[in-house]
Simulated scan of single mutants.
Amino acid sequence: MTDSAVEFFDARALHLLEVPVPQLSSEERAAMDRFWEESVARQPALFDGPAVACIAIEDAGGELLLSWARVTYRYRALRRLDTCSWLPASVFVTVLQPVEDGGLIVGRNSGSTASPGRWALPGGSAEPPAEGGTLDLAALRRHAAQELLEEVGLTADPEDMTVWGVTRGEFGNIGVHFVAPPVPAGLVHKHHEGLVEAEAARGATAELDQLAVVRSEADVTGLGHYADFLPQVVTRYSAERALRTA
């Protein structure tokens, strides 16, 4: 998917509303289960954990209303069907972690992930709260900070992270992007190296096997395989920074 296919919402506010999961036919459910089992056979590390699906998103002049439902990862197998009454769109969070010279930290997914070799911002799929709990912006912010810690080894106070933008890309996936305070690039790499070593010591693989600093769309495209939203996010962030520092 190219950057031109990614829609960007300049969201001043984001409201989340839980709704029921759309009903599947018995044929759709059987096909979904079959495709999921085939995926697990190819990649045994896959886990059918809880996930958040975007059912609809409405933009009322910068006030976004995101309707979501509780699903599991196997629902993504519906995307492989030729026809389906409903295509599940994922909701995910990312962190724009600036370094002090103005670039953004990106990481390459390791072979243990669902998208090995793909470069993206630190982040991951949103998770639903416990039954009766509320999924709101504060919960997404905390999740983004947790992803930054787990993938980069860098601790950030969720209260210091602000919503920077919302994107809609491939399969209608919704990305909620937060920006964190700048830190020295050397500090980021030091924390990530420590994380990689700690994971290796326990016989595991870090989610991100390599970090880089990007400042332009050319930097992103030069990486090779990257998340669809990444060029647009980096371009917009760099343009905004140039205006602030002009």
Results as ranks from 00 to 15, higher is better:
Leu14Glu: 07
Gly194Phe: 10
Thr221Met: 08
Ala204Trp: 01
Tyr73Pro: 02
Ser26Gln: 14
Phe47Tyr: 13
Gly133Ala: 02
Pro184Trp: 05
Asp10Met: 11
Arg118Phe: 09
Gly103Ile: 00
Glu150Asn: 03
Asp160Leu: 12
Pro184Arg: 05
Pro158Gly: 01
Gln146Lys: 09
His177Pro: 13
Val106Ala: 03
Leu87Glu: 11
Tyr237Leu: 08
Thr94Gln: 13
Thr235Glu: 13
Trp164Gln: 01
Gly61Leu: 00
Tyr237Pro: 07
Asp219Asn: 11
Pro231Ser: 07
Glu63Trp: 04
Arg202Cys: 12
Val6Leu: 05
His15Tyr: 00
Leu66Asn: 09
Pro184Val: 06
Arg118Lys: 12
Gly175Ser: 06
Phe229Ile: 10
Ala242Thr: 14
Ala242Ile: 12
Ser26Val: 15
Leu187His: 13
Ile105His: 01
Ser238Asn: 07
Thr205Ser: 14
Ala201Asn: 02
Leu135Lys: 04
Thr155Lys: 09
Val21Ile: 12
Val52Leu: 09
Val234Lys: 08
Gly103Glu: 11
Thr162Cys: 09
Pro158Ser: 01
Glu58Lys: 06
Ala242Val: 14
Arg108Pro: 09
His177Ser: 12
Ile55Trp: 04
Val71Trp: 02
Ile55Phe: 00
Met1Thr: 07
Thr83Gly: 10
Val214Asp: 12
Trp119Leu: 00
Tyr75His: 11
Ser85Asp: 10
Ser25Val: 04
Ala156Pro: 06
Trp119Gly: 00
Leu81Glu: 05
Phe171Tyr: 13
Val220Leu: 03
Asp3Asn: 08
Gly132Ser: 04
Ile174Lys: 10
Gly224Ser: 10
Asn173Lys: 04
Glu100Thr: 14
Val93Glu: 01
Ala185Glu: 13
Glu100Cys: 00
Ile105Val: 15
Ile105Trp: 10
Glu151Val: 03
Gln23Glu: 15
Lys190Ile: 00
Val179Ile: 14
Pro116Lys: 03
Phe9Val: 04
Thr72Ser: 10
Pro128Ile: 03
Leu104Trp: 04
Leu66Glu: 00
Phe171Glu: 14
Pro184Tyr: 05
Thr155Cys: 10
Trp164His: 14
Trp36Asn: 13
Val213Ile: 15
Val95Glu: 07
Gly222Val: 03
Leu230Cys: 05
Glu127Phe: 03
Pro116Thr: 05
Asp33Ile: 12
Ser238Trp: 04
Arg76His: 13
Arg108Ala: 09
Ala206Trp: 01
Gly132His: 04
Leu121Ile: 05
Val214Ser: 04
Asp136Pro: 07
Ala31Asp: 10
Thr205Gln: 15
Gly194Ile: 04
Asp157Tyr: 06
Phe178Gln: 05
Val6Pro: 06
Arg76Tyr: 10
Arg241Met: 15
Glu7Ser: 12
Ala41His: 12
Leu46Gly: 02
Ala69Pro: 02
Glu197Ala: 15
His177Glu: 03
Thr83Glu: 14
Ala77Leu: 03
Leu211Asn: 09
Pro98Ser: 03
Glu131Asn: 09
Glu151Phe: 11
